[in-house]
Simulated scan of single mutants.
Amino acid sequence: MFTEKRYNRLKWACRRGMLELDVLFLPFVEEAFSDLDAEKQETFERLLTCDDPDLFAWFMGHQKCDDPELAEMVKIILDRVKV
């Protein structure tokens, strides 16, 4: 369960050094995070611990994420943006 403090830390972690990632993560956490089940919320939190160059490569399609859970979360976020 995400407490308000943990959720606020998560929102802070969404602020990256790259605009391309910021425009994906912050709207996602504000608008869709609460709709995820607990397991996917944990996966999203883990995704935010990854390095920005890896995240950029995964989200821009330059590289495939080897972790299946993280790859699924990348897909969820990208699918939401395409809608």
Score class of each variant (00 low, 15 high):
Phe2His: 08
Phe2Leu: 13
Phe2Asp: 12
Thr3Leu: 12
Glu4Ser: 11
Lys5Cys: 04
Lys5Val: 10
Arg9Lys: 11
Arg9Cys: 07
Lys11Gln: 10
Trp12Asp: 09
Trp12Gly: 06
Ala13Glu: 01
Arg16Gly: 01
Val23Cys: 15
Val29Gly: 08
Val29Gln: 02
Glu30Phe: 01
Ala32Phe: 09
Ser34Phe: 00
Ser34Ile: 03
Asp35Cys: 02
Asp35His: 10
Glu39Arg: 13
Glu39Asn: 08
Lys40Leu: 13
Gln41Cys: 01
Thr43Ile: 09
Phe44Asn: 09
Glu45His: 15
Leu48Pro: 03
Leu48Ala: 00
Thr49Ile: 09
Asp52Glu: 14
Asp52Asn: 12
Asp54Glu: 15
Leu55Ile: 01
Ala57Lys: 14
Trp58His: 11
Met60Glu: 08
His62Met: 07
Gln63Val: 03
Lys64Ala: 13
Cys65Ser: 11
Cys65Tyr: 04
Asp66Trp: 12
Glu69Phe: 08
Glu69Asp: 14
Glu69Cys: 07
Glu69Lys: 13
Leu70Pro: 06
Ala71Phe: 06
Ala71Pro: 02
Met73Asn: 05
Met73Thr: 03
Lys75Trp: 05
Ile76Leu: 15
Leu78Tyr: 11
Leu78Ile: 11
Asp79Thr: 05
Val81His: 05
Val81Glu: 10
Lys82Met: 05
Val83Thr: 07
